[in-house]
Design a protein around this nucleic acid. Structure first.
Lengths: 137, 137
DNA sequence: ACATTACTTTAGAATAATTATAAAATTGGT
DNA sequence: ACCAATTTTATAATTATTCTAAAGTAATGT
């Protein structure tokens, strides 16, 4: 359990005002050592059940996008009706179970290093994401 | 330029009735050796400019989803407001330029083989997709 | 502490891709 | 040609996300 003053500092340093809503979301997302995957819909429910505060949907979107821009969250590239975010911002990949709509982390050491031979003139690589779709045997 | 009778046969064999709309879409998608990436919106415009037929939006969606289910098209996993499809159904990966919203094929030989060490009990790997996001240097 | 400014939150409206609906049209088999 | 099954179509419904602009809150200077 981290103290909220830690989040207040971090938010300020990032140029984000430490509002009640942002601190609450920080606590819900980052107060555990476990990283996890969520959609805005998931997070809305988490807020509802785990805080006695109502945060408007627009604020949830704003906050998550702000955190993502600052690099505290990663958006995961999958085709789903909802966008997934990851509190694990390290370079890593994912399993995705399309039936259960669930993501599972693949740590960097779970995947042999990926090397791309092709280059595009005038372009540089920003990120390399591997999505491994899985299914019942 | 393939003959439409070829598509009629293929559709019939797949259990899809060869309608005027489906044949038109086949011709627009598969009448070239070049494979390409498109969104439903792209395809709607292609139909508009390259055939003298108006195909309703619902039919475009139905057809593309039917073709995808039969394995004639691949959906590409990226987070975009629109879903991308690929006429190249072979195992391959992609560059994605988020600014220009453009996809570029990475042939299988452009990427060193990907090996996943982790396994999930009761689950098998269905596909492995690599998305390389690129940006201006 | 107070005032002023800038940033945030909020509810609700707007947007846009996709899916659902159900009537009309077309296809395939007899 | 006839009939049943499938398909197309226009339109409505759905849903995630973004926009808007008014009200609230935080930061800063006095």
């Amino acid at each position: 359990m981290r103290s909220s003053t830690e989040y207040i500092e971090k938010l300020r340093k990032s140029g984000l005002r430490p509002t009640k809503q942002r601190i609450t979301i920080c606590e819900l997302l980052f107060n555990t050592d476990k990283t996890f995957h969520f959609t805005i819909n998931d997070l809305t429910k988490i807020i509802e059940f785990n805080s006695n505060q109502k945060i408007s949907l627009a604020t949830v979107y704003n906050t998550i996008h702000a955190f993502q821009k600052k690099g505290y969250l990663k958006e995961i590239a999958i085709n789903s009706s909802q966008t997934y975010f990851d509190t694990n911002i390290s370079a890593h990949h994912h399993f995705f179970d399309e039936k259960e709509k669930k993501l599972i982390d693949l740590e960097d050491e779970d995947v042999y290093p990926i090397k791309i031979k092709k280059t595009i003139p005038g372009k540089k690589i920003k990120s390399v994401e591997v999505l491994v779709k899985i299914d019942k045997i």
